[in-house]
Simulated scan of single mutants.
Amino acid sequence: MIEKKILSVENAILLLKHIGHFKSLKGISIYNIDTSSLSQKFKEMIIDENEKKKDEKNEKLMIDLCESYLLLNEGIFSESLSICVPCLLKVALNKEEREEVQKEVEMALLALWNTRFIKIEQELYLSEIKEIIQHHQEHHNMTHLAYQSAWDFLINKFYDDKFYKKIVLNKQHQARDESLEEVIVIELHFVKEAKREMEELSKCVDWKRKDDKKVKEKKEMIILMKWLDTINGFFHSCRSWNEDFAGLIRRTVQILRASRCNYGEIHVKCLYMIRRAAEEKIVKIGDLLKGESVDVILEEIQQPTTYNNAMRNCLYFFLEISERLKEKTDNKANEAKRMELKRKIFEKMEEKGYEDTLASLYGEFSLINEGYRNCLPLNISEYFVNI
């Protein structure tokens, strides 16, 4: 359409930015666009515009091109990336609080978020992302989506660095990786910020609606689910314990309870996040207890409408805790703490009638296993009865 002059370049870019914004917000993939002639055309336009002399460059066009290109593509060419990332970080560093500027910052950060699975050297982004996040923490100048996109970009780069380090055992890279973890956990207070953002977003959702109409998906709900995905990535990569873990888990438990009746997708993500927290040893079992995750998983198992995938996550939660509590230690203080945790969890299970619930569900284990390729051991009840 552009080549046939049915649609101007400016209008095409505007249309593609809207499509890319919707695609990124909803987490939709557009297959084969990376190899399309449209993607190639945009890459060429970005490179051509970048090679122009300073006084000949069209800054607005460059921003639009970079945003459209990153929002639509899944795999980004390195040459384009080295141009687009600095360009959009410059947009995101605009600290004005006007609504128009906030929308521009949101679009730029959402486009950068779309590079989350692409390897980018820290020198290209880290100081700028730190400044963006820290300024928002002081002045609250960004939208919820912009702030979440900035964090998700950073957490995914953390995950990428962890994965890359396993393949390339380089001491210099390892030092950078540890430095990035310190930035995320200590300097930028990710856990505290994630808990606060989820609390604010959850206030925007009408959890108690009673009508039978299909729930309309609000932007705040989508951002809330994106935060849950980000937290999952953080737990998977982080190796530094944080005192706010219990509070973050408690906030997730509260959202899980609120979403149980009417918000199935949020409910599923909360349940999965709690299971992942139990899997990752960086989250202490004491954090899980303080965060009320043991209580809520016991509640979930006894729900009359619990579906197989939810049941699987619940059973895995207790399986992970049970396995971790079996690890004895020679340190008397730590061993006493382990036994105390076992006692507390066992008392909760007795109080909730968990063993009776397991007995009533025993016939369903084979059905769950069949649906999930025997991921759960057939003698799973023994893990819990003998905890």
Rank of each mutant, 00 (worst) to 15 (best):
H189M: 06
H189T: 04
F190G: 02
F190W: 00
F190N: 01
F190I: 00
V191L: 02
V191P: 01
V191F: 02
V191S: 03
K192C: 04
E193M: 09
E193N: 13
A194P: 00
K195F: 05
R196Y: 14
E197R: 01
M198H: 03
M198P: 05
E199K: 08
E199A: 06
E200R: 05
E200F: 07
E200D: 15
L201Q: 01
L201N: 03
L201I: 05
S202H: 05
S202F: 04
S202A: 13
S202W: 05
K203D: 13
K203G: 02
K203C: 06
C204A: 12
C204P: 01
V205D: 09
D206S: 15
D206W: 02
D206P: 06
D206I: 08
D206C: 10
W207S: 09
K208H: 09
K208L: 07
K208T: 09
R209G: 11
R209M: 13
R209Y: 06
K210Q: 15
D211I: 11
D211K: 03
D211T: 15
D211A: 12
D212H: 08
K213V: 12
K213A: 13
K214D: 10
K214E: 14
K214M: 11
V215Y: 00
V215D: 03
V215P: 04
K216D: 12
E217L: 15
K218D: 14
K218H: 15
E220V: 07
E220F: 04
M221S: 14
M221Y: 00
M221L: 14
M221V: 08
M221P: 04
I222E: 02
I222S: 04
I222M: 06
I222P: 00
I223M: 02
I223F: 01
L224V: 02
L224E: 02
L224W: 03
L224M: 10
M225E: 11
M225C: 13
M225L: 11
M225Q: 15
M225D: 12
M225S: 11
K226C: 04
K226A: 07
K226Q: 10
K226F: 01
K226D: 01
